[in-house]
Computed example of a mutant assay.
Amino acid sequence: MINIVGGSGFIGTRLSQLLQQRQLPFRIIDKRRSDDFPDQTVIADVRVPEQLMQAVDPGATLINLAAEHRDDVRPISLYYDVNVQGAVNLCAAAEAKGVRKLLFTSSVAVYGFAPVGTDESGLIQPFNDYGKSKAQAEEVLRQWQARAPAERSLVIVRPTVVFGERNRGNVYNLLRQVARGRFMMVGAGTNRKSMAYVENVASFLIHTQNLPAGVHVYNYIDKPDFSMNELVSTIDAALGQPGRSRPRLPYAAGLLMGTLLDVVARISGRSFPISAIRVKKFCSDSSYSTAVGQTGFHAPVPLGDALSRTIRHEFVEQHTDRPLFYSE
């Protein structure tokens, strides 16, 4: 049995679809019922140890997707309550239920503003509370594995930004702005971005279940990396609008705008689509290397096809009856 903790969300729903297609038994453990798989959902909050203890199946393979991940989470302590203490609680349930395989979706955010080409051996130096909490959760899980190193398999997957159909995160916001003709490039646009398609990430999680005892760490990226200029051009081409010209905003001006809106947000309690951290993330290089290929895994959907699928689903076809997933 596979238990998907936090499985009602974006990655968990696609993972559940793939498991169902492959006729692999699974159960979702989440604080809310899955819209797509309500009958396979057990309600439990990772912050409540007693609920997890009852929900986890004996000897199950645990896939931990539960996380607080948005940039604007308040209070800040939620990152640590869910991501870190949730990992502590999950490890306790794993100990009690004889779990020997645990997969954890961490994040490349643990590297902070990493040098281009950072691989799995990169320095852990997160710059925000999300990245810090993910790094701390990784250490909690390593301690669980170290208590029975010859028996337990821990797989830590650090995806870059994950996109796909029905997701309302940063990639969707970019796609929508480009599609509506409202996109303005901030900075030179030469910074490179690693990306990951949700179906490929889910497929890799299934692939790693057969890894032996030990600790296995993988960045997850779908290559090739695009510069922001190349990415926008690719989106334009998929929309049938190649060669569009757009205004540009210098980086300093964009950062100033984000900082001012942060002040307004703190005073008013409102959220804005632009913030200083989002401008920094948009204009930074986030290009990583990965050892995924060494496992024999081949992504089922090439990155260009994944972008085309997402654009077609969101801006060409009609899918108004499907629930959406909101993330960064």
Rank of each mutant, 00 (worst) to 15 (best):
M1S: 12
V5W: 11
L15R: 03
L15C: 02
L18Q: 15
F26D: 05
I28L: 12
K31A: 13
R33L: 10
S34N: 01
D36E: 13
I43Y: 08
L52V: 07
Q54M: 05
V56C: 03
A60R: 06
A60L: 03
A60C: 03
L62S: 11
N64W: 03
E68N: 08
E68A: 15
D72S: 14
D72G: 08
P75F: 00
Y80T: 08
Y80G: 05
N83D: 01
G86H: 13
A87Y: 07
C91V: 11
A93R: 10
V99E: 04
A114R: 15
G117A: 00
D119L: 04
S121L: 06
L123I: 10
I124T: 14
Q125Y: 07
N128K: 10
D129T: 06
Y130P: 00
S133L: 01
S133H: 03
K134C: 03
Q143Y: 08
A150Q: 15
E151V: 11
E151Q: 15
S153E: 12
V155N: 00
P159L: 02
F163S: 04
R166F: 09
N167D: 15
L175M: 12
Q177F: 05
R180Q: 15
R180Y: 06
V186G: 06
G187I: 01
A188I: 03
K193Q: 13
K193R: 15
S194P: 06
M195V: 11
E199Q: 15
S203L: 04
F204E: 09
I206M: 14
I206A: 08
H207Y: 02
N210Q: 13
G214R: 00
V217R: 04
N219G: 07
D222K: 00
F226M: 09
N229G: 12
E230N: 02
I235H: 09
Q241G: 01
R248P: 03
R248W: 05
Y251S: 10
A253W: 12
A253H: 07
D262Y: 12
V264Y: 11
V264H: 10
R266I: 06
I267S: 09
S268D: 05
G269K: 01
G269D: 01
R270T: 04
S271R: 13
S271D: 07
F272C: 04
P273A: 04
K280T: 07
S284G: 10
S286A: 03
T290G: 01
V292N: 09
A299D: 02
A299W: 01
A299N: 03
A299C: 02
P300M: 10
D305F: 02
I311S: 11
R312T: 15
H313A: 11
E314N: 04
V316C: 11
Q318R: 09
R322N: 08
Y326M: 08
S327M: 14
